[in-house]
Write a protein that binds this DNA or RNA. Structure first.
Length: 188
DNA sequence: TGAGTGATTGACT
DNA sequence: GTCAATCACTCAT
């Protein structure tokens, strides 16, 4: 079962924390890959570091779409990042999925990523997109089809909020969330 | 119409 | 630790 739209329609920081421990699944023609979300970041509409800060554009239009849809964008011309759109339609907010713990389809991930190092498969936003086989075609798709998020089986998890990384604006905001002791987070 | 910038990664020193 | 790769967007001519 997938998460309801009410799950995503809350404020973005709450969704960012709630997504930790959930299972991201992608059924591709090559097989299924899945991983537990261990690291997220919240991007708010009034946040200078967010793509939606300076209004809607062709690139970030999906961010303003319905909650529970995917926002995939190209970064640095080379990599892609995967976000989950949150809050109400028309509000440009989303949660960036930064890292996963691989649980299914690991051999397929290894082929896609061209490495056998399990820790290198999904320990970063660009990496997990490639490992999961997510493409720009998935931009704007709802997360209840081939690509979906389901409740995880992880029982206990300690969540840590910390400063975001890799950005130059509003770096002091504590909008990055990780599961404590997760071995798959994107930066030490 | 053109320069500047970035929610990154991987290869190299 | 440093740096290039390379695309979509923004901002300035």
């Amino acid at each position: 079962m997938t998460l309801s739209s009410a799950f995503y329609a809350r404020n973005t920081t709450a969704v960012a924390k709630a997504l930790l421990g959930k299972l991201l699944i992608h059924d591709s023609p090559h097989g299924r890959t899945a991983g537990i979300i261990v690291e997220t970041e919240a991007y708010l509409q009034d946040d200078p570091a967010s793509h939606s800060y300076s209004g809607k554009s062709k690139r970030n239009a999906a961010m303003f779409g319905k909650p529970g849809t995917a926002y995939v964008y190209t970064s640095y011309g080379v990599h892609r990042c995967f976000n989950v759109v949150t809050n109400k339609a028309g509000i440009g907010e989303a949660v960036l999925i930064r890292a996963l713990e691989p649980v299914e389809g690991i051999s397929l991930m290894q082929r896609r990523r061209r490495t056998k190092d399990v820790h290198a498969l999904c320990s970063g936003p660009g990496k997990l997109v490639e490992a999961m086989g997510i493409t720009l075609q998935d931009n704007g798709c709802t997360l209840d089809g081939k690509l979906r998020i389901v409740p995880g089986r992880r029982k206990k998890q300690k969540i840590i909020a910390c400063k975001r990384v890799g950005i130059s604006k509003n770096v002091h905001a504590y909008l990055r969330y990780i599961i404590k002791d997760a071995a798959f987070c994107s930066r030490p």
